[in-house]
Amino acid sequence: MKTVAALLVLCLALCLAPTARAEGQFRVLVVAVPNRYHHDYAVVAQPRFEQMARRHGFDLDWAWNTAHFDGDLSPYHAIVLLNTPGDELAPAQRGALERYVRAGGGVVAVHRALIFNPPGDWPWFEKLVGRAFRIHPVVQTATVRVEDPGFPATFALPRRWIWSDEWYEFGPPLVEGLRTVLSVDETSYDPTRIWPGQVAHGMGDAHPVAWYHAYDGGRVFATALGHPPAAYDDATYLQHLYGGIWWAATGRGVIAPAD
């Protein structure tokens, strides 16, 4: 009798699962394509993102490749390019992403997603990211400064945050309207500490590492943070990501500065 009852409970749970999943407040696609320098992070990140979805009540699809871009992207309120750059997309898939954004979709570009090779091959994507990557020194600990405390990706962060990462350097903005969310204090690390044969000088006082903007009908949040696999086990970093995802998916949460 107990076995029958247990089977009935299991069947009921299976029947209700699709309904429960459909009740999420929004739906997010995370694309995590392994690459030469970024692969170990994904096995840490996936369970943490799934936990994030359960905690905050949104629907999550996880992808190890770009096949979703061959189908219908319209059900997604945001697409997270997790260490997945635009050069992973085939030409037809690039067109699908452009149509998705123009229809009002949100994009979250994380770390390696901010680098496009070869530069100039897909200007639309480079403008979506907002800045062109130049180089980065070796991983170091540095001080991150909150530049926009009214943006959700900063709500869980202290005004000064000690973090270890690859401190990407960028060229000037490729579009107007970029809003810097976080910057790194170059006096707190050595921007010139790099591999033999390469040269980095830093960006000076203004060195953004996270920003957001409206672009071509959609919303884009970009963060250069996220190289070490251990980052995806860090609660503060995950709150940083979720704040950006929430805004990209809904457009909500931004606190306007007081007059």
Rank of each mutant, 00 (worst) to 15 (best):
H201F: 10
D40A: 12
A53D: 06
P18D: 07
F58Q: 04
I245K: 03
V107E: 01
F116V: 15
D259V: 12
Y212N: 04
L12S: 14
F116R: 13
D185M: 08
D121W: 03
G202F: 08
L82K: 07
R48I: 04
P228D: 15
E88N: 11
A90V: 07
L8C: 07
D190K: 00
Y100S: 03
C15V: 13
G218I: 13
V209C: 13
V31W: 02
F155K: 08
A32P: 03
A230L: 13
A214D: 14
A42V: 04
P208D: 02
H56D: 06
P152D: 10
L16T: 07
T236G: 04
Q93R: 12
D148L: 07
A256K: 15
P229D: 12
G150S: 05
G130Y: 00
A5T: 11
G86E: 08
Y100W: 08
L82P: 01
Q51G: 08
F58T: 00
G244S: 09
D148A: 10
L29V: 05
R54Y: 00
A248G: 09
F116A: 13
D234A: 03
L8E: 09
L174Y: 05
Q239C: 10
A142P: 04
L182R: 01
D87G: 01
G105V: 09
H77M: 02
A113M: 14
F133T: 03
T192A: 15
F221H: 02
G104P: 09
R48L: 08
Q198L: 15
G204R: 08
T236V: 14
P149K: 06
L157C: 06
P149N: 05
P257V: 07
P85F: 03
P18F: 10
A63T: 01
K127G: 01
P152N: 11
D40I: 08
P123N: 11
V220Y: 04
P149W: 07
A258E: 15
D61T: 15
V184W: 00
E50W: 01
A113W: 14
Q198C: 11
V31K: 00
A20V: 15
T19F: 12
E166V: 02
G120P: 05
L81W: 15
L225I: 01
L241K: 09
Y242T: 01
R252T: 04
Y168F: 15
Q51H: 09
R94I: 10
H77P: 02
Y37R: 01
H213K: 09
W161H: 05
Y76E: 01
G218L: 13
Q46H: 14
T180A: 11
G104V: 10
P208V: 03
V129I: 13
V108R: 11
G204D: 04
F155V: 03
I245R: 03
R54Q: 11
G120E: 08
V209P: 01
C15A: 15
P34E: 00
H240M: 12
A206D: 14
W161S: 05
A13M: 12
F221M: 02
A249I: 06
E176I: 02
V9I: 15
